[in-house]
């Protein structure tokens, strides 16, 4: 394990770099951040380098460079929170994702914290106190770190959700997330404390949130979860596990057939839920107000592309 080839400056705007970076891998990540380590291990984590800048007032700036094994995992970490002020560091001016389901930005700043997706790096730069001068120093560090790095596109998996302009539901781009773990799923949309969908490092998942305005009623929201399993057999096993844990009181007479798409819908406590299985792709919808909405939303998943 070696620190990445990024030359951070020894001083920046009155802050001074202290010593060599602290290197953290799977063996000591819990010593560094306790249970937070579960998040990074739920993606393909390689190592973390931590740099500290100190200034005279004791307002330290900590630079954390999470080296993920590939770009899509670094993207996944950023996708868990699209909030904050979008900032441009080394992002191409005219970049337009093919994916219509996420914001265009790759870096966000808020109250002393900068979060960045840059190729296989997920970057967090945080000052303890958000005082004048902090934002400028942090953004300069962000630009130095990302300078000259490549800009791979977001995960292909995002293309498995279409969003036509005439769709009657509004897609909340700032709620779209990419992940591989049920722990992350539960932090976004709780299903169960157990891994009832058999998610792991060999699966990929995207969750999107739809909303619809309703006259004189609270806004209606619904979720679409799309999962890519390594193969059809694992997708069927996961669907069976989901059924037993989540819908034990529902009967579905469908017998999964590798050569045919199957789907079914059920009315439960929080509205209509349903599944669609095709090849190694599984789509699930939750909290739909009626069966028609559930059917419409689940059709937004392009399972044949997985």
């Amino acid at each position: 394990m070696k620190p990445e080839k990024i030359n951070l400056p020894n001083t920046i705007d009155g802050w001074k770099l202290e010593g060599a970076p602290r290197l953290i891998d799977k063996t000591n990540i819990f010593d560094y951040m306790n249970g937070a380590g579960e998040l990074y291990l739920s993606y393909h984590f390689d190592h973390l380098s931590v740099y500290e800048y100190k200034n005279k007032s004791g307002n330290d700036i900590v630079v954390e460079l999470y080296n993920m094994k590939d770009s899509q995992d670094a993207f996944g970490l950023l996708s868990l929170d699209w909030g904050g002020e979008p900032v441009r560091l080394d992002q191409p001016e005219e970049e337009k994702h093919r994916e219509a389901v996420i914001p265009q930005d790759r870096a966000f700043y808020g109250k002393g914290l900068l979060r960045v997706w840059s190729d296989n790096l997920y970057v967090r730069i945080m000052a303890f106190k958000d005082v004048p001068g902090v934002r400028e120093a942090i953004l300069r560090l962000g630009k130095i770190i990302t300078a000259g790095r490549s800009h791979p596109p977001p995960p292909e998996m995002l293309l498995a959700v279409k969003h036509p302009t005439d769709f009657p539901w509004t897609l909340r781009k700032d709620r779209t997330a990419y992940f591989r773990s049920y722990l992350v799923l539960n932090s976004l949309f709780y299903l169960s404390h157990e891994n009832i969908l058999n998610l792991d490092l060999f699966t990929e998942a995207v969750i999107v949130t739809y909303e619809k305005e309703q006259e004189s009623r609270e806004k209606q929201s619904a979720r679409l979860l799309v999962i890519k399993y390594p193969d059809y057999g694992k997708a069927v096993t996961a669907l069976d596990s989901f059924f037993k844990a989540y819908l034990p009181d529902q009967n579905s007479k469908l017998v999964p057939d590798k050569d045919r798409e199957s789907q079914d819908f059920f009315h439960i406590e929080d509205g209509w839920t349903g599944f669609r299985l095709s090849g190694r792709g599984l789509a699930l919808v939750f909290e739909c107000p009626d069966k028609k909405s559930a059917q419409e939303i689940i059709q937004q998943a392009l399972l044949n592309t997985l």
Binding site: Y190, L191, S192, H193, E194, I196, K244, A245, Y246, I268, E269, D270
Partner: peptide, 13 residues
Amino acid sequence: KKITVTRRDFIRG
């Protein structure tokens, strides 16, 4: 018999 706590348990109370 395996019983799993799920979202539905919260909604049902």
